[in-house]
Amino acid sequence: MIVFDLLGGLLLVAGTSFLLLGGLGLWRMPDIYNRIQAGTKATTLGTLLTLAGAAFLQPTWALKLLLIGVFLIFTNPLSSHLLARAAHRSGAHKTATTVVDHLAEDRTARNTNDQGERG
């Protein structure tokens, strides 16, 4: 079982390195959208790897760890999506290097269409 232990420990370290990368990206990235990107994707992957590592270390806990992972997969994208939309709607400004904003383009296009039909 020494192989399992070693593999589990390495997975734990890999997962928490992703967590650290997420935290670092949260600190270093220039604007809110980049920070959401770093702060949710990397940490989700990191937590899943950590759970897998714990399952290798203690094989009898695997079912509960799997459930935790499934719940994370369900809930994390939902919160990050809503957060990004809220940031966009509340008008958080972008940095100068972020130039593509498809949501705002869609909005303005829809608004001009509506006015055209009405007029």
Binding site: F71, F74, T75, L78, H81, L82, R85
Partner: peptide, 14 residues
């Protein structure tokens, strides 16, 4: 939003 209403249909039973 669509994602939140669909997600609530999935998550509330859970």
């Amino acid at each position: 939003g669509e994602l939140l209403s669909t997600g609530s249909r999935l998550l509330v039973p859970l």
